[in-house]
């Protein structure tokens, strides 16, 4: 047993040495090879597309490839549950989504808790918005509310999934406006928007990314603090008297074992991309809204607030107890 103990000690010492060696010399040169960027969904979704937007900027700024791979399953839960089993050398990063990583562990045992996810940056969000067809009779949010009040329960909203930003926005808005509408969950923004365009539903709880991608749609209002720079003529819910600021937030996380210095370095790199005017323009033209929450107190403050908001509205929606 003595020898065994010795081996363990030596191994531990070696690990410490390697780790320190890494922090001392390697951080400055990080990244020295391609970084694997794991998306917790299928290719072609918004999480994938925003990663794709980052890809060329990353290569240009840091000289290394950002290689996407996909670990779809359980609405992202399969990938996030495995995040901390990956080696924390900084060469594997994973996309994370809010409200998913807050709601999923609050609903059931999914193999991870919100605290298990070490985010290094929250880099953008897609604000919720009410989307209708171009030729819809509803010109303003008021039109829609009046109609919904006359026909309680008959107004159908499509949206992407349940327990998602769209769903929470629908529940919150129903409460704020004093109306009752039916929410029809679809498997993503594309089928949900198709349902509005095809007239299967009256309107859709979508995102600000919908009008740029799907010709023939327009928004009645957006759930942002200020108007979206790309849609100056679309009011915010706040202007209309509804306290609704919400959306789907996306960030990048690393395994828990990733050294502090690497976490900071990654946050700095993403921050640099996030401040590139060309990147900002590309994101905003496609309807995304920028967000800069780098690793450290800023991210902690952001996460604490957003977590509280999500839990509150999810409880109101009856999604979690």
């Amino acid at each position: 047993m003595k020898t065994f103990g010795k081996i363990v000690l030596t191994a531990a010492a070696a690990v410490v040495a390697v780790t320190f060696g890494l922090t001392a010399t390697a951080v400055a040169e990080f990244p020295e090879k391609a970084i694997n960027y794991v998306i917790a969904f299928k290719p072609g979704g918004e999480s994938d597309i925003t990663g794709r937007f980052q890809q060329p900027f990353f290569k240009k700024k840091f000289g290394q490839d950002l290689v996407m791979s996909y670990k779809d399953g359980g609405g992202g839960a399969v990938a996030w549950a495995q995040l901390n089993t990956i080696s924390g050398d900084g060469y594997t990063i994973m996309g994370t989504n809010l409200p998913h990583i807050v709601i999923q562990p609050a609903q059931k045992a999914v193999g991870y808790t919100t605290g298990d996810i070490t985010n290094v940056y929250m880099f953008h969000y897609t604000p919720d918005a009410i989307v209708v067809k171009d030729d819809s009779p509803f010109k303003t949010v008021k039109d829609l509310i009046d109609y919904a009040k006359k026909n309680p329960g008959k107004v159908t909203f499509s949206g992407s999934g349940k327990g998602t930003a769209n769903h929470l926005a629908q529940v919150t808005f129903d409460r704020l406006a004093g109306i009752k509408t039916a929410y029809v969950a679809f498997a993503g923004t594309a089928p949900s928007t198709t349902a509005v365009l095809g007239g299967q539903v009256v309107a859709s709880w979508g995102y600000t990314t919908v009008p740029p991608s799907y010709p023939g749609t327009r928004m009645l209002a957006v759930a942002m603090e200020k108007r979206h720079p790309k849609f100056r003529d679309v009011p915010t819910f706040k202007e209309l008297g509804f306290d609704l600021v919400s959306g789907a937030y996306r960030g990048i996380a690393v395994p828990k074992s990733t050294p502090e210095a690497i976490r900071k370095k990654l946050a700095k790199m993403i921050d640099e991309i996030n401040h590139d005017p060309a990147f900002i323009k590309q994101m905003e033209d496609n309807g995304f809204a920028m967000l800069n929450a780098p690793y450290g107190p800023e991210l902690d403050k952001f996460m604490a607030k957003i977590k509280k908001d999500i839990i509150t509205s999810a409880k109101e929606a009856g999604i979690i107890k």
Partner: peptide
């Protein structure tokens, strides 16, 4: 329409 007809189309669209 910008609506991917099949899964590979979604990636191509991206």
């Amino acid at each position: 329409l910008g609506i991917p007809g099949t899964p590979p189309d979604a990636v191509i669209l991206g």
